[in-house]
Amino acid sequence: MRGEFKVKDGKLVVVDVDVRDGHFTGTHLSGDFFLEPDSALEQINAGVDAMPASSTVAQLSAAISARLSPDVHMVGFDPEAVAIAVRRAAGKATGWDDLTFDLIGPQVMDPTLHVALDQVIPDEVSRGVRNPVMRLWDWDRPLVVIGSFQSVRNEVDAENARRYGIKVVRRITGGGAMFMEPGNCITFSLVVPGSLVEGLSYEQSYAYLDDWVLEALQEVGVHASYKPLNDISSDKGKIGGAAQRRLVDGTVLHHVTMSYDIDADKMLEVLRIGREKLSDKGIRSANKRVDPMRSQTGMSRHQIFDHFLTYFRSRYRCVDAGYTDEEMAAAHSLLDTKFNNPEWTYRVP
């Protein structure tokens, strides 16, 4: 069996291995990494051999580390990367190429429905009634979406939100507030099985799941990079942030919002924390805008949507898809029972 793992900003690790009597055997490590001395290759192989085929990434990594002599230098990879490749070889972890995604383009709707769909769709992926999903949001009215653990009172100026007709909704993931007006942001949700991030820490999984969009941004002239824990930055500053939620079975909801062209003055009036954050960046005067995606690309928002969809199709196996009647009915039901319910919205006052 063969497993591969590309280390973020590092090298490719390839492991060929057999399983006999429930244990790994005949391990052969290869890749474009650097390793000194040469004899360390056999030490790593020996660290995997005889380990139970059910071993976790942590157990395999510990067994490999225990075999390495003090003079070993691993450049571009580490024992954990080898362990992940072993797990993939054994079919316990998956790579992007093992998946077929349902790709859903932007569909204009009440943004609260998108928040609800981020609960509906991961449940379907978890139950196996949906492929993994990559979907783009679009919306027709303003909304502030706060993180699962944020305080409404601390984050939102209620009087100004009412004055502008902006509702507040709490999502199921952590992280910070999203200030959403029609056309001002680009948001996508990615729902994948837990096996895709097998063995990765939360921080590593953010970088791993954001990798495709960083490459897509490079193609349209945005020199983007991942900034721990959950930010996407460019050479001109932060452009977006990510949030995650993992279901009991490991299914991952990963969504990202990036600024296209935001009315910073209005955002400062509505978001209390936003005032402090943006004042640190020197955005204090009237008529300032946060427009990194528009100014850096020169593209319309829908051109960027199209580019993201085209890039994702070129990189991964996809089928074009839409929302089912059952999904939309479930999302509408959640509006009544949860996302429009003050008990949920104000669970952290």
Rank of each mutant, 00 (worst) to 15 (best):
D18Q: 14
N45D: 13
P79D: 14
C185I: 01
S234A: 03
L190I: 07
R245A: 11
A161D: 08
S225H: 15
K6F: 03
G282H: 04
F339P: 12
E219F: 03
N287R: 05
T345Q: 06
D235F: 02
V290M: 05
V19E: 14
S233C: 15
K277Y: 14
M180C: 14
L190N: 05
V82D: 12
E124W: 09
V115Y: 11
V115S: 12
F308W: 05
L29D: 10
D49Q: 10
L190S: 11
D118F: 01
S333I: 05
W96T: 03
G3K: 03
T56Y: 03
R347C: 04
A321N: 15
A264L: 15
R347W: 05
G26E: 13
P182I: 00
D78V: 08
L214P: 14
H23Q: 03
F5E: 01
D97K: 10
V115Q: 10
M1L: 12
A50F: 10
I64Q: 09
S314N: 15
M1P: 06
Y164W: 10
S61V: 13
V17D: 04
C318F: 04
D21C: 03
V319Y: 13
A83T: 02
T324C: 13
A62W: 09
V82S: 10
E198S: 13
P292L: 01
L143G: 08
S314W: 06
M258L: 13
G322V: 15
V144D: 13
A58W: 11
A81Q: 11
T27F: 08
R275G: 13
R162C: 01
K277N: 12
T187A: 06
T324E: 12
A331F: 04
D306R: 04
P292D: 06
M109T: 12
V120Q: 14
D71Q: 13
S233M: 14
F101Q: 09
Q218P: 10
K236N: 14
L29Q: 05
G183W: 06
V156N: 02
T94M: 04
P79L: 09
E36V: 09
H28N: 14
M328Q: 15
Y206Q: 11
S225V: 13
D235W: 01
Y164L: 04
A85E: 05
D140F: 03
D102K: 04
E4N: 05
A161S: 09
S201V: 13
G322M: 11
R275T: 08
V133Q: 11
F77D: 10
S65K: 15
R275A: 05
A89N: 02
A264N: 12
I84V: 13
R245I: 04
D16H: 12
D98V: 00
G105R: 09
R347V: 05
D138A: 07
A158P: 10
S148Q: 02
A63E: 09
T337F: 04
F305S: 07
R130C: 02
T27L: 10
V72M: 12
G95H: 02
A83F: 11
S279W: 06
G241M: 11
R317K: 13
K6W: 04
